[in-house]
Design a protein around this nucleic acid. Structure first.
Lengths: 202, 202, 202, 202
DNA sequence: AATGAATGAGATTTCATTCAT
DNA sequence: GATGAATGAAATCTCATTCAT
């Protein structure tokens, strides 16, 4: 009755992971479907059994990155009571996202960005805006708690959140462009200090 | 003397400017040579009399952006004596780069970045690294003067410079992605304050 | 005796009928094997247990149509003695073939024709020529009987038969192309009258 | 200033004629763009300089056929006064359309039909319905003149026209399917006689 | 110098068919 | 026998670049 028993979920993941690896190495536009197929050790047509199009595959790849990042961050800040420490931890967490395991994913973001910003201007095809909105929401919550507790200045939390995320992204880009320039951990801590002090009362 | 050379220079610029306009509107990969030719009011083949390839044209376009930005910044900070004010001005200057006239150029950067980081990993085809190196050098100079004067803390200036540039880039990206999120000037001033205080003694 | 064989026959018919329905709705080239499988409620691979290829399935589908049409016609003209009336009935019978139940089938013919005439020029893959030969034979018989009886002119029966079939086909095509143009029954009766009078003596 | 002087009209025709030849030989779906390119002795991409898509090329090919046919017919019936003779001539004219020169074109019609009827049901992509409407209009005019003159019966001219065109088409299909079956001229004259007598008074 | 007609490598996607289970 | 996962040939169309004029 049931032929060739295959764990579709598993195979989908195999393809997705292969795609991420190749996307990361070659970039979105330079990655051809055949490359992904070869990387996964399957036939070209098989990809289309699991993903409708190259674009869908790219979106999925990006989402893996985003979800993984969220998981990391959420786990680390969950049990921190002090808003100051929570904000600092939130920022330092980006380090782990860029960590060995995620380095590949990280590179994809640049392509996704370019595509997202440009090609589908108001569309948010890759959910980039949604992702940033989520990040902002998380940071705004931290800021609000801090403000209520009286440890943070009553800043415009939306702007502050955007600025904080921007600085994190920007730092990462600098590092991605030239990894020998500085140690991420050190720079990140510098930045975190700077930012935290920026929003701290006194 | 040699009017031909003037003509050539002029035409090269015409093509380059047209290219920038089209690149900015459509994005690097979506821009076809014919579009540039039409925008310049010339024939497709003529472009190749002035630029070896589409890539060379893109590089040139990006460099125009970088040089223009530099001219703006250099002009504004030249005559400022106080390092604190100079650093603040340097940062605020990015505002003008993203200003009406340069908004279009700004969008190109995302594409260039993606291409630059990825495709030609160690190559720095577009001179992005060189550009950042220049930016860093300028900021390092400001920081050094400030440190020597005793107004800045004796930070690792290279890291600090990278962090500062990163924050500027990051903020701009946030804004490019969703221009309704915040007013650039306001956020930029917030950020500048934060950063300046971060490196200021006491 | 051998219930397996009955099952096989039954399943073959199930597939064939599903194929006809889908072919009719989507057209030969637009019909994919998976569509047929789904319509039959079976797996894609199962089709190949009963039919060697899509082409063979198409041939079989067409033959069902032809045979069904023949059954209809034969039944109606069998017991008619008068050749004049028999010819007229033969023609009117096409109406029933195009009737509700067969309307779908009818559409297939256009595709089959195109394929038949062209792709396999001298091959008669779909048995179209054989089908027409059969039709001609039947009409020739009617004509011959009429000529012998002295009610028909001694026309070249082969040509006349081809002309008659052609007119029927042509009328049907006109109608298939624009069903609002005329009522089939009315036009068919007009045509039948015209043709019958054309071959009738005096 | 002006490079490679090429008569675009001429080249378009070269491609169109090559396309017609190949379409006629291989059929619409079996004809690949590369075939047409090779037949025209040009590169694959060049076709797209003159025709937006394969479909547009097919439409153009079909229109050549239709226009040529119209030119032939119009020229022949223009100066005929007698409606009876005019109708007969109109029909016989189809012979010339199927003539040596047009034989190739004729074969295309079957594919166009199938495509036209099916794929784009209400769309009339190839202008087939429009073509038939024109044919009907011409025949209706002839019929009306004949009726007014009292030589034709007061038939429903729309139906009669559709029937007449249908018979012509049908005859041609019969012949295209098996050219050895009968001589077109002979059969056509038979049919014309039959039809003319069918609508003639007395 | 300027042009644009010509080109063909190349990419995505489809789908009939195969075959391991 | 039944299945559907896997496949890869094949086809359309794009576009940077060339080059004859």
């Amino acid at each position: 009755m049931t032929p060739k028993i295959v764990d579709k979920e598993e195979k989908r993941n195999l393809i997705l992971e292969s795609a991420i690896r190749v996307f990361a190495r070659l970039g979105l536009p330079n990655t051809k479907m055949i490359h992904i197929a070869e990387a996964a050790g399957i036939g070209k047509g098989t990809i289309y059994e699991y993903f409708k199009s190259k674009e869908e595959l790219a979106v999925a790849a990006f989402n893996v990155f985003v979800k993984e990042a969220q998981k990391q961050i959420a786990g680390k800040i969950r049990n921190i009571e002090d808003p100051v420490e929570q904000l600092r931890t939130y920022m330092i967490c980006w380090l782990d996202i860029m960590d060995e395991d995620f380095l590949d994913y990280a590179d994809i973001m640049l392509d996704i960005w370019a595509e997202s910003v440009r090609l589908h201007q108001g569309k948010d095809l890759f959910g980039l805006n949604k992702m940033y909105a989520l990040y902002r929401k998380q940071i705004i919550e931290i800021l609000n708690r801090g403000i209520k507790k009286g440890v943070f200045k009553p800043v415009d939390t939306t702007v502050a959140a955007a600025v904080i995320i921007g600085t994190l992204d920007g730092l990462m880009i600098q590092w991605l462009l030239d990894k020998k320039l500085f140690k991420v951990r050190y720079a990140l801590e510098q930045l975190a200090d700077m930012v935290v002090r920026g929003v701290m009362k006194v």
